[in-house]
């Protein structure tokens, strides 16, 4: 049986493949295998934060650098720890906005095609209580890509009990957690790292993030609505005068009778923004546990109030 990678780059997948949570793959042998596409493993268990705004930060060296302030609000509890023995895969579950929206919305309508794949992955990551994908997957004898990987589910933002759905409340009660709005699993390659976490445990920011560390931050980008090719893809506009009628048009969409069609993947107008994006390797400038704030160098997706997933940076050759 040939080994199929579940983690091909998102851009390389076709839309059809992205939309399904399970991708049937026809192998060279007569046996069919189904590969579960899951969110990629993180370098470590992460936490959630809320984007608070930007500021100029003076470093010790005297540099004034653009920085983003991330508020660490109530929450960041470990809500579940998953191992290959119990769930067929391993995770630490946590709670945030984006993940919760993905999980509760069901159809991944608000997201782009590429994000749908991530959504499917997060649905899988959100645990057995929330989605039917897992038992179904198990029933079909799915070959999990990395059975040695561990997951930790982390929860964020304590809310009123009435604001959380009952099945989810039950799931949280099992871990002895308060009602939490956002949940997300952090999948790890290293099983021993997940073993350090127990459900119900409050995550210590200082233990996870230190000053001058590099972190990956994921969040939903600002939605721009339906945009033309100039804003969306950086195309150039035509002449506004001198008889030109092509002001902000997209231009040619391809050759003529041969091939008689437009090639897939053509850059055209459409919905822009409002997708999950990850900014990699941002430097941590300040960890202020007293104020519950994290200051990182550079910008992060979304506007003020956007829920962010923060995890140690993945550095090729070092931790991934």
């Amino acid at each position: 049986m040939r080994a199929f990678t579940a983690f091909s780059p998102a851009g390389a997948r076709t839309a059809k493949q992205q939309l399904g949570s399970f991708r049937p793959v026809q192998g060279s042998s007569s046996r069919r295998t189904v590969v579960v596409q899951a969110r990629q493993a993180e370098a470590g268990v992460g936490i959630f934060g809320t984007k608070a705004g930007m500021m100029t930060y003076f470093t010790e060296a005297g540099l004034a650098v653009p920085a983003t302030v991330i508020s660490l609000e109530s929450g960041n509890y470990v809500t579940a720890v998953k191992t290959p023995e119990t769930d067929g895969y391993a995770a630490v579950q946590g709670e945030t906005d984006a993940a919760a929206r993905l999980a509760s919305a069901g159809p991944h309508a608000a997201l782009g095609r590429r994000a749908a794949a991530a959504a499917a992955a997060s649905t899988q990551a959100l645990g057995a209580s929330r989605c039917r994908a897992l038992p179904t997957a198990a029933a079909h004898g799915i070959d999990h890509h990395a059975p040695t990987r561990m997951h930790a589910q982390v929860g964020y933002k304590v809310v009123a009990e009435r604001k959380v759905r009952k099945p989810e409340l039950g799931h949280l009660a099992k871990a002895g957690c308060k009602p939490l709005k956002h949940l997300r699993e952090f999948k790890l390659k290293d099983a021993s790292k997940v073993a350090e976490y127990t459900p119900g445990q409050e995550l210590d920011v200082n233990a996870i993030i230190k000053v001058s560390d590099h972190i990956d931050i994921a969040g939903t980008t600002i939605g721009k609505g339906f945009q033309g090719t100039i804003k969306r893809w950086g195309h150039r506009r035509g002449l506004m005068t001198h008889g030109s009628k092509s002001h902000r048009e997209h231009g040619s969409t391809g050759p003529g009778s041969t091939p008689g069609r437009t090639f897939p993947g053509l850059k055209s107008a459409g919905h822009m923004g409002n997708v999950r994006r990850k900014v990699r390797a941002l430097e941590v400038l300040l960890v202020d546990t007293e104020r519950g704030a994290l200051v990182v160098k550079g910008s992060v997706p979304g506007k003020r109030g956007n829920i962010l997933e923060i995890a140690p940076a993945k550095i090729v050759g070092k931790n991934c």
Binding site: G53, T56, V69, S71, E161, R162, P179, R304, G305
Partner: peptide, 27 residues
């Protein structure tokens, strides 16, 4: 169906913008 909340809800002490202002003032 809904029982009264079992957990006290912890609201954040301050908003997001005042947090940024506070950090700016600290600098």
């Amino acid at each position: 169906l809904r029982a009264p909340p079992r957990f006290p809800v912890a609201h954040s002490v301050r908003g997001l913008a005042p947090l940024v202002d506070e950090l700016k003032a600290a600098q």
